[in-house]
Nucleic acid binder design. Sequence first.
DNA 1: TATTGTTATACTCTATAACTATA
DNA 2: TATAGTTATAGAGTATAACAATA
Lengths: 152, 152
Amino acid sequence: MAAEQQVKPGRVVARLARALEVALGCVDLTLSQYRVLGILDAGGEAASVLADKLGVTRPSITGVVDGLVLRGLVERHPEGSDRRRIGVLLTPEGRQLLANADAEVERRLTEIAAELGAGRRRDALEGLSSWQEALDAHRARKLAARLSEVAS
Amino acid sequence: MAAEQQVKPGRVVARLARALEVALGCVDLTLSQYRVLGILDAGGEAASVLADKLGVTRPSITGVVDGLVLRGLVERHPEGSDRRRIGVLLTPEGRQLLANADAEVERRLTEIAAELGAGRRRDALEGLSSWQEALDAHRARKLAARLSEVAS
DNA sequence: TATTGTTATACTCTATAACTATA
DNA sequence: TATAGTTATAGAGTATAACAATA
């Protein structure tokens, strides 16, 4: 009952991330593409907002979106009155593929979690819910910080 | 108290993985390099074993190890009597950098988890312990399956 | 002047196919 | 023949720096 506290959280996330990459390969998506589609699932976003939310540079977003456009998974559209901004939107095909990806990934993660007893299996999955909440709150806080910085 | 069950586990892992990449950038490591160092922390391994454990091809391992050797973080050594096999070992510098990486990554994940209340924060971190256990068991099962396949 | 998005360029990781050395 | 590791090559993601168009 001791020897539990020296878990290295980063290493666990690193291994889970690789499992995710392999699962996404089955639906021909990269981790980066999956992240972009996941954000767009909640609605279209400007390229710069995508870059901000993902923590990558704008040239990176250009590249990933180029690939998704080529496959018909997203579309670029003018957005609002600021003619510099370009919105990115999920197509029906993109939405469908994202659903397939979610299912495949969940299947894979469930298969791994199946190694655990029922109690710890529930802990593992509920832990991810907690992380989601934390990530959402953290993103909101960073956004608020950026906005108040701009106001200065 | 409803609206809790539609969490998409893959998306959470995808976002955590990006947070990890950013944190590792602070110590000049990629996710793949961190994974390799993490395995070697438990002891030297042949290149093919690394490929197996990480779920990547052998050429990929050659490339990642090349980069780590160039930076003096790992070394290649002949291993055992089979002169085809090449063992990869952590250097003291590699071990030190890995420790720094673990610390930086943990700092970042803790910062994100700090958005949660104490209870859910504990859930989140203990959930990762459960995932570690699951990943270990799953890896062991795959290894056993491969061995019994070879025996046929 | 500042911002949005892109282009140009370079580095890393990934994969497949072909090769060498060893078994 | 089969296996361990490498080389060759190509595709994707990342970054920085420089540029165009717009604000």
